[in-house]
Write a protein that binds this DNA or RNA. Structure first.
Lengths: 137, 137
DNA sequence: TTAGATGCAAAAGATTTGCATTATG
DNA sequence: CATAATGCAAATCTTTTGCATCTAA
């Protein structure tokens, strides 16, 4: 019995073929539902979009992945890693870069100052990447 | 001639009645399109939703307001103030609190480390506010 | 066997587009 | 008067819901 089993079964959840396939294509890098469907398609796997949405919601509630809204109004999902990081999104080519940022300090500070019990936060940077800047000159 | 005129006219934009009314109800506090429509309705002002969207987009491109996506998948707009701040959103009652955070240092650091030219960033905290926490006990 | 999961169709909700009309500069 | 802005209808896009069927435990 591995960690995944334990996490799932405590909530009466089931490990299905679809869930296994979806977790296989998830990464510690933010992907939209279309990205995920595409990754599945590449492997000749066909899973209904609704199932993908429901699975991602399930994984999010279990704390396996995080959901972040990007500026293009779509949600991105990524596996949670020990080292929490944030993102830089290029407004020009859409490339996404990780940016490690130690935010424990600020999270504690915010909680103390405001009385809020912080459940999640988002920190995203948007701009133009080096390559696109050069291309414009 | 005030600053608003200059900003507008350099782009061949026009100051219309609708734009004046909309700017009147904008605040240095994030509002969704429905909030804005509501604020207008309270003043007996009827402006088409599409016009509101187009106006907000125009103001955003002019740098008068910022657009941020909240966890409920809708965009919020707020007047840009000298003192940039971030938000705490209560997942329970929806209340939004400001949280001042000096981020010049981190912005510069991110730009240097990654070669990105940062254009905007979002930092939002989501959790449960003090009142809702007490209410749950 | 039985409740949770899936897939299809359809709904919902936010935002965008097309186009004829209006009004600013 | 030229053209930017508006309003209406309809389209688009992402995400959610309902429901019959399937399947993991």
């Amino acid at each position: 019995m591995n960690n995944l089993d334990i996490t799932f079964h405590t909530d009466g959840l089931r490990i299905t073929n679809q869930r296994k396939k979806i977790i296989d294509v998830l990464t510690p890098f933010p992907q939209g539902v279309l990205d995920i469907m595409g990754a599945l398609a590449k492997k000749q796997i066909k899973i209904d979009k609704v199932t993908v949405y429901r699975t991602l919601d399930c994984f999010t509630r279990l704390g396996i992945i995080t959901k972040t809204l990007f500026n293009d109004q779509t949600a991105r999902y990524e596996l949670i890693t020990k080292h929490h990081h944030h993102h830089l999104v290029c407004n020009c080519c859409g490339k996404v870069k990780d940016f490690p940022f130690e935010d424990n300090y600020i999270l504690k500070k915010v909680g103390k100052q405001t009385g809020f019990q912080i459940q999640s936060h988002t920190l995203e940077f948007f701009g133009v990447c080096g390559k696109c800047r050069k291309a414009k000159i």
